[in-house]
């Protein structure tokens, strides 16, 4: 088909679709206030139910914790798939990294980044943040390592096996806390009440901090694995 004809066709279809969507959006009423229903209940009694100040975390890891389990499984599956597809590659020992100043600075900063990520992970129930967000920060350390110190440094420090073990461990923390919920409270992923101390402290909100911790490790290790798989190079001799 001729290129411009195709372009015209596509654009006209898009205009049609935009009109259709617009027409339909006209019918959707504005979301003016909270209705009686799920959100109303969660806002009014979320704190007393779960002990988590952050209601979004309460929804994520308590009311709808099963979704989060599925979500972390999505990352797990994606990591498995990516490693599978890119596994025929090997890591090139690229540069020796950046200059001494950068290396040194980063060496000093690293513990603080790690601490920050730990903070974000563990305070998920008190302030904005949580396992996923903190896990991403954790993965950033690994990524910056490879930029600053050269690609092989992090690879030698934390070998893929360690990362895989960490990822599996994180996943198992989540799943295990769920199973403990069955054993102790009768429901899968039920918030473990006996872990709750005074509301507002670090040790509160039942099992939510622990779940957060597991997810944080899992996401951090998983994203690092994805990054390292992607920067690998084809193993020419293979097959």
């Amino acid at each position: 088909m001729h290129k411009y004809l195709k372009k015209t066709l596509v654009i006209s279809v898009f205009i049609l679709t935009a009109i259709a969507l617009y027409e339909n959006f006209l019918l959707v009423p504005e979301y003016t206030g909270l209705r009686t229903g799920v959100s109303d209940y969660i806002i009014s009694s979320g704190l007393s139910d779960t002990g988590s100040l952050n209601l979004i975390t309460a929804v994520l890891y308590d009311y709808r914790a099963f979704d989060s389990l599925g979500e972390s499984t999505v990352i797990f599956g994606a990591v498995s798939g990516i490693v599978l597809i890119l596994s025929r590659k090997m890591l090139p020992v690229s540069s020796r990294g950046l200059s001494f100043i950068v290396k040194r600075t980063f060496g000093l900063v690293t513990p603080f980044i790690a601490l920050f990520s730990l903070y974000v992970i563990t305070h998920g129930h008190l302030s904005p943040g949580g396992g996923f967000q903190g896990g991403v920060i954790l993965a950033v350390i690994s990524i910056i390592f490879s930029i600053v110190y050269g690609s092989a440094f992090d690879y030698r420090r934390y070998s893929p096996q360690v990362k895989t073990a960490m990822e599996t461990m994180g996943a198992f923390t989540f799943l295990g806390l769920g199973v403990v919920g069955i054993l102790m409270e009768g429901f899968f992923l039920k918030n473990l009440g006996f872990l709750t101390a005074r509301t507002g402290t670090l040790i509160s909100a039942g099992s939510i901090p622990y779940v957060n911790f597991g997810v944080g490790i899992k996401v951090g290790a998983g994203l690092a694995i994805i990054f390292y798989s992607m920067i690998q190079k084809t193993f020419k001799e293979d097959f």
């Binding site: 969660i42 309460a58 929804v59 994520l60 709808r64 999505v74």
Partner: peptide
């Protein structure tokens, strides 16, 4: 409403994967 925000967080992670 906290629920859509939590759902969106899930959606973002899935989209990234």
């Amino acid at each position: 409403d906290p629920v859509p925000q939590a759902l969106t967080l899930t959606g973002i992670v899935i989209g990234a994967s």
